[in-house]
């Protein structure tokens, strides 16, 4: 059993990192969005191996909708919606590679070199029950704050994207934005 979960852990880990890289390598925007989702699913799998079953599944559940929206936004807002043509759109590429590698090395060094207390989850604990009690018990205020923040964000997002102004449709009579590139 331990061997199986070890193998699964390494499979999911490699899958998470490789699919994460593929997001920025692939030429198709729908593929990019769903590679990212594959990365999330792999991390969800790791969370399930770590006994955080509920969190892993919720992560997978959330990402299905979010990545679908992302794929559609990619198709809507990219200048080249055909999607299977080369699509490398990068700037400050070398700096970014150095920054990414630097972040990885620094964080991995912290993970490998720092001393963390070795206190695993004791057997017999049901993490889902624990989480539920915590969310609606001692930490209810934090949970509620997250809920209120989400509500505020929802209102803000609707205000940002809504076309309807105070006196009806805001863009009445105006033109839709064209797909042509505007002059720099």
């Amino acid at each position: 059993m331990n061997l199986i979960s070890d193998i699964l852990f390494w499979v999911f880990s490699v899958a998470a990192v490789v699919t994460g890289l593929l997001v920025f390598i692939t030429d198709s925007m729908v593929r990019a969005a769903y590679w990212l989702m594959a990365s999330f699913v792999a991390v969800g799998g790791i969370l399930m191996i770590l006994d955080a079953q509920f969190l892993g599944l919720i992560l997978i559940l959330m990402m299905a909708g979010e990545m679908t929206i992302m794929a559609i936004f990619m198709v809507m807002f990219m200048m080249n919606p055909a999607g299977l043509n080369p699509m490398t759109m990068v700037h400050q590429h070398r700096t970014s590679i150095v920054a990414g590698a630097g972040a990885f090395v620094a964080l991995a060094a912290v993970g490998l070199l720092a001393e963390f207390p070795d206190r695993p989850v004791p057997p017999g604990v049901d993490p889902t029950v624990d989480l539920g009690v915590e969310l609606l018990g001692e930490s209810m205020l934090i949970f509620e704050s997250a809920g209120v923040a989400l509500l505020a964000v929802m209102i803000g997002a609707v205000a940002l994207v809504s076309k309807r102004g105070r006196y009806g449709i805001a863009e009445e009579g105006s033109e839709e934005p064209s797909l042509e590139m505007s002059e720099e």
Binding site: V17, F24, S96, F104, A108
Partner: peptide
């Protein structure tokens, strides 16, 4: 932690 650092690094690059 190494795996999560790798994910974070790829994210920074992206």
């Amino acid at each position: 932690l190494v795996v999560s650092a790798a994910l974070f690094g790829v994210g920074v690059y992206g």
